[in-house]
Design a protein around this nucleic acid. Structure first.
Lengths: 324, 324
DNA sequence: ATGAAAGCGCTAACAG
DNA sequence: CTGTTAGCGCTTTCAT
């Protein structure tokens, strides 16, 4: 029995007889044989390796959930995931080289800012790439994202239905795709409700608890306070809640607060946070699916999919206070 | 200029003249050349790949923090990280085969249960392995872990100093290394304080919020309630807090609660949770360091390092109630 | 339907 | 000090 024959069996060639096929498979199982990926990769066939590239670092609280979906979907397709790097840490690091040296077939990219140079480099490299939460496309690049705009729009609509007229917004990082989309959702939501946000009602932060806290203090210091606040992230919303508590403002009786993400913490704060849930595992699975197609079909058009979100109503939202 | 010469330069052979060395390096930089890892690996040299093997799934809330430390330390040493799999998902999956096929130089293993068959298989395989939170050693296997026992012992000591005499314990998953160690810490801490835990005072859970909630309800239903409860995890402590709130028991005035881990949620619950902080990034970095040594020095003895923890006092602990 | 042979990009041993 | 050569384990022609 020659190596060539074994190879053919393992690669599902049709030119091998049923008898030998069986024999080979039996032997493979018995010997616990698995082909050396390095050799396979070297000879020019597929490397079955997908890289993941992050800019945020791992601190992002829902990155794990994303990873869960990614991992599952990759395993189904036989890919292995290699953790390329956090770009932020080493600016001189050349990830395109890295991908080539590892024969990476495709890249999942997460945490890039809008217009970041590195993102463009990745698109230009021609390595099949799928961005998560960044609307970049290219010859061989596409993206998936939650429907950030519609989500915030829906949150505003919900608050409007509860009778709120002064709805403020604590924006996330300007220049980030999701930050901009969510802000746009706020503006359109307000417009659709026939409300005009005052300039003071939009406070810019960076998604963190600290800026959420400061933003809320700023809003509470206003002569006329808003009755509801939508935040660009749960972290910010938690900071906002903290500021409200310190100021003795009752949530939700005097003030309604809405977050975004539905991280674990949202459920344990008091009162539990009303927030927009992103289905991160689904986003991850979808990203893999699209990337796989991008790899398999070189001529296919750049995919871009927007995933719907759910408003999870908990305890931080209620009817607008009388005479508010 | 021959390929061999380039190879020698890139591998720091001393048998190459300064002049050509410079020339090669210049060219390498200019061409953005990086050697093909598959070929390197194939020819029997190092693969510079470390695998990570999980049983818990990624849901573990501090896994990201661990990963942060791991990644940083791996990058410093030039390794790449490959996600092998979550064992739990596919029981028939043969990770030893997988490691071999990918030429993995070493494995970081996290989330194994005490006495789990798979863990033994990994040790037996001879692949350099470093367990995190599991005290398994072998020819080429070692471990790192927080000082779980001393940590809980310290928590009990702290509560005792606050005047508590009835200190209950919500245990984590029996059969898990950390669960057992923490329980041992409770027992020894009680003994050291001259206290004898009643059988009812130890409630067994599995680290989750749900079992923490149920455990606390059980403790509150006791004829004589404990004045303090130590929990085997923050998640359980958060569940316990929830049960206490629902029962109208004031924390910390009537009841003190201590958690374990110091996850993000610990800071945002109300009152903020007193808990034992594990330095997960440090644990990750240490694991990599030890694994690297295990790989580099085949004859070296099995490493095992216990990392100290810190008790973070926040708002859920206070003096024992009068006449309690 | 099977096997022999070439070669993927590199490193190691050896010759010059 | 440099280049030539063999071969890592596999896949892919191309004969048989």
């Amino acid at each position: 029995m020659s190596v060539a024959t074994v190879s053919k069996v393992l690669n599902d060639y049709t030119t091998v007889s049923r008898a030998t096929r069986e024999k080979v498979l039996a032997l493979v199982a018995e010997m616990q044989f698995r082909p050396n990926e390095a050799a396979r990769s070297l000879v020019g066939r597929r490397s079955m390796t997908i890289g993941i590239l992050l800019t945020t670092g791992l601190s992002n609280p829902f990155f794990v959930h994303l990873l869960g979906g990614i991992d599952e979907a990759l395993k189904e397709r036989g890919y292995d995931l290699i953790y390329l790097a956090q770009l932020s840490a080493h600016p001189e690091y050349n990830f395109v080289q890295h991908c080539r040296s590892r024969n990476v077939e495709g890249v999942l990219a997460f945490g890039f800012q809008l217009g970041e140079l590195d993102a463009d480099k990745l698109v230009a490299s021609g390595i099949p790439t799928l961005f998560i939460d960044l609307n970049l496309t290219g010859e061989r690049a596409g993206y998936v994202s939650s429907d950030n705009k519609e989500a915030v729009q829906g949150a505003v609509r919900y608050l409007h239905e509860l009778g709120h007229r002064r709805i403020a917004y604590v924006a996330g990082l300007p220049g980030s795709y999701v930050g901009e989309r969510r802000l746009a959702g706020y503006r359109e939501g307000m417009a659709a409700a026939g409300l005009i946000p005052r300039p003071d009602d939009i406070v810019v932060g960076d998604f963190t608890q600290e800026t959420g806290y400061r933003a809320m203090r700023q809003l509470l210091a206003l002569a006329e306070r808003p009755t509801a606040v939508v935040c660009g992230s749960d972290k910010a919303a938690i900071g906002a809640l903290q500021a409200a508590r310190e100021a003795g403002v009752a949530v939700p009786d005097e003030l309604s607060v809405v977050g975004f993400d539905d991280i674990d913490e949202a459920r344990v704060v008091h009162p539990p946070l009303t927030t927009v849930r992103q289905d991160m595992p689904a986003l991850g699975r979808l990203a893999v699916e699209l990337l796989d197609r991008l790899i398999a079909e070189p001529g296919s058009p750049a995919p871009s999919v927007i995933v719907p979100t759910t408003l999870v109503v908990r305890g931080t939202t209620g009817a607008a206070p009388m005479g508010g």
